[in-house]
Amino acid sequence: MSLVEYALQATLGANEPWPDDVVLFQQYQVEQITLPDYAQVLAVETFLHMCGLKFRVEQRTNAEEMSPSGKVPFIQVGPYLVSEFEPVVGFVNTKGFTLTKNMSETDRSEMRAYMSMIDSIMGNAELYMAWLNPDIASEVTKPRYGCSYPWPLNWVLPWRKQREVKAKLKANDWAYKSIEEVCEEVKICCLALSERLEKKSFFFGDSPTELDAMVFGHLFTILTTILPGGHFTSVVKEFSNLAQFCTRIEDKYFKLGFEQ
């Protein structure tokens, strides 16, 4: 939560270096994690890689319950737990690592605007697709979400989670959209990103920013996850510069990382 990060800024300065035993917690990647959660995890991982910070990924079945805000991913730095993308960015900034040092105020405000766009459009669309589309929810999301629990729980917990997501999407009117309308929203979002990116290698200037990490997290997840219907994948694939952007980031920050 941003509130957690708020309190931390007072107690933590740049004097403490980045410790070696930073851990990022997430659910089991192959069997358990759901599409919206994985997009968030990947965004945070990419951001930490871009900052050149060392960390270790730990997979836990109950990562969601361990997190202070109830959402994955979260990182453990010394005695502190920080969860979700924006608080992690804020926390890392207090440690003296930032990706937006030389940006003008206008650029920075545009970057924040694009980040909120991804958060609101992509985030909600992923939740909609994963939990409200009946085929995907019953075939993919619910079995995965409940995979680590024994019988009555593997039915109850996904059902409870689904109800929670439904209530949230009803509150912001996303639940009343049809699947076509949701795809249209995703398309508008991708179009805006694609026009902003043009032929450049990063969104702002020639170095990566938080926005690049976030875009990669969401688009790469959509491109590589195979879901029944495959609605979003086909939408994102229409934008060739975005797909190229994803492969470029993957090569730069993930392939090399594994070799090292």
């Binding site: 909120s116 609101s120 805006a192 026009e195 902003r196």
Partner: peptide, 18 residues
Amino acid sequence: STKESADVVAFSAMLEEK
């Protein structure tokens, strides 16, 4: 311009979200 139209989409989303 197309880039400005993209900014319109982004800022509109930010208004609604924040």
